[in-house]
Design a protein around this nucleic acid. Structure first.
Lengths: 334, 334
DNA sequence: TTGAAAGCGCTACCAA
DNA sequence: TTGGTAGCGCTTTCAA
């Protein structure tokens, strides 16, 4: 039960009968230590249960830890989970570990958590920007901490970004619905006042306008407070319900299905983002790969840590329209 | 573009015309510093873009960082994402940050990543044990690092654990299927050789045996390599297909739906774990709250950091049977 | 190949 | 209320 002290380089050095520096070398550049010396050191280290303290290593002037911070607003969205998983995978293969921070989608939250991560001297900061403005990070950028925005671009801050081709994805889906003969095509989003939704909405509007259906006002069901279910019910339950729905994201797609069941209607449906049972249900989606998105973003972070750059890079990943039947006039059958 | 040096306590002290220690106090115990002095210091800090280095703070003898490590085998499972989200939330409200490590479900992976996290001097290590044995952590435990197992108990290691009532959950679901008149009730799991599945299987067997249906051998479809889809297809496509299926986890539930659609069959179904569209689809599930699980585990970690304990605590969280129709003889309709 | 000394940014201890 | 000194565990010169 005796809580022993944790062993340090010194302890190991003493037991192995070598200098501190030699022990250090065994862990940082083992090839520069004689084989026998190395074995002695490692034996001593094992006996003492020594574990190098990577925090202390970091203390060098201007040093950063081998961690990368990831700031997510809403941890409950499965899409961001996958992004995080992709990031983790890429980082770990680069020998970096992921430190997670959640702002719960609040303005001050984001800055507070960013602060905490930066105080830990993360080697880079990855974030899904949620606050109205990220200029508060400009000082850090100038101090050399790479900032990588994921899914949405950072505002008022020069930062690399990995985004989706939201606009063309939404446009393509709308065109597919138009091709099926639909005219009353609704667009549903909540929250709507975020980058991705503005882009997708623009894509939808573009396709509608081109088809001579520019009057989309009554067909747009956008909200920032109401939950997805409420928005979906309002849209499907309106006096003149749409024959087809474009759902702004994965959660809205599910909400539409739920509302359709409740209200006993069968609108055609295409949803942005793929989701678990979409294939089983035959739901058409604008698919993309969140894991890949995370991977790309993390790769960019790794690159910037090694070679700080002056010009931010913006990557736009493609989407893919996957038609499974729900785009047809007969709509979703539940 | 000049990459300036990062400011330190010393720089701030110099600019503010006070001692280093005074600056330190402004950040650690501000109430012990005179108001005017504090203002001067903070002004200087702002001008220099000073940000305290929490890593250096940690360097005290035996010191740990204000981070908690979480070791997950398979980051792609949505269930663990929710657990992680719950953990993050609880930790952040305790002023701790979460460091994530993934072992990709490999034996050596787990130990390697645990090592990395411990080298960062996490204040506690939370893990979903995946390796066959966690005795390699015993040294750390003796050195005072709390270890909290989540979802599965640690093997050969005294550690706190937060688990589910797997057995009773599975038993209850099986009984519900029996009550509907089912006799050919299959149990499907992949991977099957893990704690949760062994427990759930035991619950299933118990209920079957009590109903005089102890011969469950042919009804058990367990695999460790095959993916869920293959297992589901094999089960539903057998010569004498079951009239009802108990799916071992969320992914298996979806696989069963997929297979049912492909093979044009409609077995009754109850799945362990809830999932996104289960309510829409009318799928009955053994529900529980992964967020809460994470929260409880993190709370335990926080507690142990403050007050190391000698006797491990094991918490078993309840499950809840949610019947939505798919348990009935007519089964799932797709 | 190995070692001694200085220093990284901060805090604990004790003194003023 | 404030400050000096001595570390924390490690790495980086520079020498041996």
């Amino acid at each position: 039960m005796s809580l022993q002290q944790r062993a340090t380089l010194d302890d190991v050095a003493r037991l192995a009968g070598v200098s501190r520096k030699t022990v250090s070398r065994v862990y940082s550049e083992p090839e520069k230590v004689a084989g026998t010396t190395r074995d002695q050191v490692l034996a001593a280290a094992r006996r003492l249960r020594f574990r190098p303290n990577t925090l202390a290593r970091t203390l060098r002037r201007g040093g950063t830890s081998s961690t990368v911070g990831l700031l997510i607003g809403d941890m409950s969205n499965p899409f961001y989970h996958s992004v995080a998983a992709g990031i983790e995978r890429e980082l770990s293969s680069a020998g970096l570990t992921l430190v997670l921070g959640s702002s719960d989608d609040s303005e001050e939250g984001e800055e507070r958590v960013a602060d905490a991560l930066l105080s830990q001297r993360v080697a880079a900061l990855m974030m899904i920007p949620a606050a109205a403005d990220q200029s508060y990070l400009d000082g850090e950028r100038q101090l050399g901490t790479p900032v990588i925005a994921v899914d949405r671009p950072a505002k008022n801050l020069l930062a690399d970004a990995v985004l989706l081709q939201n606009r063309s994805g939404a446009r393509q889906a709308t065109e597919a619905l138009l091709a099926q003969g639909h005219r009353q095509i609704a667009y549903l989003a909540s929250p709507a006042d975020i980058y991705t939704q503005r882009e997708r909405l623009a894509g939808y509007r573009g396709a509608m306008t081109e088809a001579g259906l520019g009057r989309t006002g009554p067909l747009e069901h956008l909200s920032d407070d109401a939950d997805e279910d409420a928005v979906a019910r309002a849209a499907l339950g309106s006096a003149e319900p749409p024959t087809a729905v474009l759902a702004g994201n994965n959660r809205m797609s599910v909400a539409v299905l739920r509302a359709a069941r409740e209200l006993q209607v069968s609108p055609a449906l295409i949803g942005f983002d793929d989701f678990d049972t979409a294939d089983v249900l035959g739901i058409s989606v604008i698919s993309h790969d969140p894991l890949e998105m995370g991977r790309r973003a993390a790769a960019l972070a790794v690159e910037r840590i090694a070679r700080p750059a002056t010009v931010p890079e913006v990557v736009e990943l493609p989407t893919r329209l996957v038609l499974r039947g729900s785009e047809r006039p007969e709509g979703v059958s539940l």
